[in-house]
Amino acid sequence: MKKQLCILATLLFVIALAACSDESREFTMHEPGVYKGGKDPLLAKERHQELNDRFMKVQTDR
């Protein structure tokens, strides 16, 4: 009886420990050469002129 209780307690402890894991359960099926990561909001923005203006303001020779 004592042994069974011990096994049950160990099992409960392991399950409780696994439940605490914050690792994502999601997975991504890989396809060669295909990016399947998150979409970067930066990709949709046009900042060329803004960045050029910033460069001329900050980095040009004194």
């Binding site: 994502s24 991504t28 890989h30 396809e31 060669p32 050469g33 295909v34 990016y35 399947k36 990561g37 998150g38 970067d40 930066l42 990709l43 900042r47 060329h48 960045l51």
Partner: peptide, 20 residues
Amino acid sequence: CPVDCFYTTPDGIVLHDKDL
């Protein structure tokens, strides 16, 4: 990269997804 976690922005900046 075996999981293709890299991407390049229209400005030519090479970035990657740490989740991949």
